[in-house]
Design a protein around this nucleic acid. Structure first.
Length: 803
RNA sequence: GGGCGUGUAGCUCAGCAGGUAGAGCGCCUCUCUUACAAAGAGGAGGCCGCUGGUUCGAUUCCGGCUUCGCCCACCA
């Protein structure tokens, strides 16, 4: 064994071995009948592994490996999401760079092109998971566009249809002019933009002056159907009920009163354009106003815009501004900065448009999910996210599921010449209403999250009643980033309850987001991303896992390599202390349970309890810190040093190896490779003797009473190192002190005076507190007792030093 | 505009059922010592954002202010 641990080669070798030996498979190492299932968030098929996947994968792998060692029948099933709009976006950009477009290719050729693209990118992702040691059951890979999965999506749609929850409505939607599709509210990003607010005068038809409105989009004036003011607004009391002339088109429209108008903003008068603004759409609907549209699906002015038809909005803006100026109806224009909705994929400004779309009514399906969250049959961690998830379900709007895209699951809807709609799967032969056989399938595809919502059970074979579904549903844990709670988590919960009659998992971990070192988001387009594969190449997979887990606190954290270097040090330390303990140096005699041995066994147990508590609470940063301290401070700095002179004693060696075994087991879920590598050094023969499937230690608590056995020695050592004066010790304590501190080699400061001063201050403080009657009366008894013990010890040490 | 979080050593972050603070990295000193110099030992460095309150005692609990950030949102 070389003194320097090099992860290269070692990690790949174990990854290959574990997989070849079938130890990644569901149920490997199973010693009890209970299952433990993690529902993995399927990465987008076009993407590459990023920091979020690496962090999330590490978290999940710790839980899976830990439960596997505990003998659970574990299932961690990998897969991909076809990621409708995101994938189409990537391929369309490729086509654009080749000087062509999807329209030029046509739908069939475009979809074929997407599939070809996936063959290139799809495979690499699982390789990336393998490279950081994710013990996924790779033989069970699933894809949301597998034939069986498509079947599930279609059945789900038909199910919702039969429940009466799917409806079609002409509503205002978020239209992305670039992708030429509607997108849901959740796919809209809001970006601050500089804009201009135009104040335009609308004259009253009775000639009694005018009312001034403010707008950022003059082009939409053409589609105005009213002007609204707040009912309590004194300024416009007399205007309500009158009519005004819409500029340019000179159409007479009413002035109405509505509480949704904000009197403080602009002039307090709002032009109502139901065809191009969500609020206006609602107000118009409630006042029985017509819907006019002047902007088409391509973002240009449409046929309703008269001679402006075909012009861009900017051109229309200019024409209308010129008209206003000419007619002295342009009051002013001012700079205005506000948030504008954009498409989260292409950042094109969203066009609110009225269009005919399919929706899922959420009022009914959300109810059982809400109950499940309130009753905590599903728990989000941390608690603040649980509250957020509940609020999200309370406020959940109906779900626009149709997308005018080409890549995705085509809706199981058919139209006949008589405009009847048939929803069926498998594809129907004839119209369900009139029997016509001239059916045309709806060209739209489903929101990509529609299929993701089925992931926990569709991957297990639903709608077939497979043995896997029977055994592994419901699962236990799901772990993701915050932004996906409404898009995915809540939807899995309600569809699971609807189709399977049970929640898909009991715990949802919402982990931190790792930001770039400058605090910005990690993003490929910003150039702020860090590739986890580079980190693995540089520090090793174990160190990378350790570092990411260390950074997985509840708050967002800026990325630094420090924690990864810490992980690399830990692996190296473990490697070296193993070299020490595995040396052959057999000589006689021993006390099998000397002071330092009872102490380290107690420390192993107490740290194990600490780690288990943390993992049960889905907290990982504290757990790796505890393991680091255990390894460095306790195991290496104290125990290994203390035991060194006794390594020739068979019993001492036996205890040392047992302690090392326990340490390796505790570390295995976090750092699987190095622990397996060391383990194989003293379990060379057995093919089944792998840490990955070895039983998790049973904490005996046998030496709990000895947890503080070394306190006196450690304190004495600290004093000696600072002052050069030894506090007298006897027996085992003296032996350990001599073994660890090795005075002949230690150059203490020799500042006895400073140490005496420090101890005096401690003694004074202790005396002051114990003399405080209110402290003694009010503080917890154990706190007071601890103060007494500390005071006694400091007094003893002070005596030893000054005497 | 609403909701949530955050401000602790030069940097990245822990911690705190309330008893004047920790880690890693960086910095300084010493040591190639037979597991480990990609190491070990020692050390410097902190009004724990500001401000009131509760308390014998607040970095920790409560209120206000403020910093930075995230999410949500139909003020045209």
């Amino acid at each position: 064994m070389e003194p320097l641990y090099k992860p290269e080669g070692v990690e790949e070798r174990w990854q290959r071995t574990w997989e070849e030996e079938g130890l990644y498979r569901a149920g490997a190492g199973k010693r009890r009948d209970e299952t433990f299932v993690i529902c993995v968030p399927p990465p987008n098929v076009t993407g590459a592994l990023h920091m979020g996947h690496a962090l999330n994968g590490s978290i999940q792998d710790v839980l899976i490996r830990w439960h596997r060692m505990q003998g659970y029948d574990t299932l961690w099933q990998p897969g991909y999401d076809h990621a409708g709009i995101a994938t189409q976006n990537v391929v369309e950009k490729q086509l654009a760079s080749e000087g062509t477009s999807r329209k030029e290719l046509g739908r069939e050729a475009f979809v074929a092109r997407v599939w070809r693209h996936l063959e290139e990118t799809g495979r690499t992702i699982m390789g990336q998971y393998r490279s950081f040691g994710a013990s996924l059951d790779y033989e069970r890979e699933r894809f949301t566009m597998d034939d069986a999965y498509i079947e599930a999506v279609m059945r789900f749609f038909v199910h919702l249809w039969e429940r009466g929850w799917i409806y079609r409505a002409n509503r205002i939607v978020n239209w992305c002019p670039f992708h030429e599709t509607a997108i849901s509210d959740l796919e809209v990003a809001h970006e601050e933009m500089d804009d201009t607010l135009t104040y335009a005068r609308y004259p009253f038809t009775d000639g009694s002056g005018h009312i001034t409105i403010a707008t950022v989009r003059p082009a939409t004036i053409l589609a105005d159907v009213a002007v609204a003011v707040h009912p309590d607004d004194e300024r416009y009391r007399d205007a309500i009920g009158k009519e005004v002339l819409v500029p340019y088109v000179e159409r007479a429209v009413p002035v109405i009163a509505d509480e949704r108008v904000e009197p403080e903003f602009g002039t307090g008068a709002l032009k109502i354009t139901p065809g191009h603004d969500p609020t206006d759409f609602d107000i118009g609907r409630d006042h029985g106003l017509p819907v006019l549209t002047v902007i088409g699906l391509d973002g240009r002015m449409n046929e309703n815009a008269g001679h402006l038809a075909g012009k861009t909005q900017e051109e229309a803006d200019q024409a209308i501004l010129a008209w206003l100026k000419e007619h002295d109806q342009l009051e002013k224009r001012e700079h205005y900065r506000h948030a504008v909705g954009t498409c989260e994929r292409c950042h094109t400004r969203i066009e609110p448009l009225v269009s005919l779309q399919w929706w899922v009514a959420m009022e009914e399906p959300r109810k059982p999910a809400l109950a499940a969250l309130r009753e905590r049959r599903v728990r989000y961690h941390p608690e603040s996210q649980h509250q957020f998830a509940i609020r999200s379900l309370e406020e959940i709007p109906d779900w626009n599921i149709s997308r005018q895209l080409w890549w995705g699951h085509q809706q199981p809807l058919w139209y006949c010449p008589n405009e009847h709609v048939t929803c069926a799967w498998p594809p129907p032969e004839a119209c369900a209403t009139c029997g016509s056989t001239e059916l045309v399938r709806d060209p739209d595809v489903l929101d990509t999250w529609f299929s993701s919502a089925l992931w926990p059970y569709a991957t297990l074979g639903w709608p077939e009643q497979t043995p896997e579904l029977e055994r592994y549903y419901p699962g236990n844990v799901n772990s993701t980033a915050r932004e996906i709670i409404r898009l995915w988590e809540n939807r899995m919960i309600w569809t699971g309850l609807e189709l399977m009659g049970d929640v898909p998992f009991t715990d949802v971990i919402i982990h931190s987001t790792i930001l770039a070192s400058d605090g910005r988001r990690m993003s490929k387009s910003l150039g702020t991303g860090v590739d986890p594969l580079d980190l693995i190449a540089k520090h090793g997979a174990d160190a990378t896992r350790y570092g990411l887990l260390k950074m997985s606190s509840t708050q967002d954290v800026r990325f630094t390599e420090g924690p990864l270097e810490e992980g690399r040090k830990l692996a190296n330390k473990l490697w070296n202390v193993s070299r020490l303990l595995l040396q052959e140096r057999m000589e006689p005699k021993a006390d099998p349970r000397a002071l330092e041995e009872r102490w380290i066994l107690a420390r192993l147990d107490s740290t194990q309890a600490e780690v288990e508590a943390a993992w049960n609470a889905f907290e990982f940063s504290p757990s790796v810190q505890a393991l680091y301290r255990l390894t460095f401070d306790d195991f290496c700095d104290w125990y290994a040093e203390a035991i060194k002179p006794r390594l020739g004693e068979p019993e001492a060696r036996a205890t040392a190896l047992a302690a090392l075994e326990q340490l390796l087991k505790l570390l295995h879920p976090v750092m699987p490779h190095v622990t397996e590598e060391i383990w194989s050094q003293f379990h060379p023969d057995t093919s089944t003797g792998r840490v990955i499937v070895t039983p998790w230690p049973e904490a005996t608590g046998a030496y709990a009473a000895d947890l503080h056995a070394l306190d006196a020695v450690q304190e004495a050592a600290a004093i000696f190192r600072r002052s050069g004066v030894a506090v007298p010790l006897e027996g085992d304590e003296k032996r350990i002190f001599d073994a660890v501190v090795r005075p002949e080699r230690s150059k203490a400061n020799g500042n006895a005076a400073g140490e005496i001063e420090r101890l005096r201050r401690e003694v004074e403080r202790g005396e002051r507190m114990l003399a405080n009657e209110k402290f003694v009366a009010n503080a917890k008894p154990e706190v007071v007792e601890a103060e007494r013990e500390k005071l006694a010890r400091y007094r003893r040490e002070l005596d030893a030093l000054s005497g």
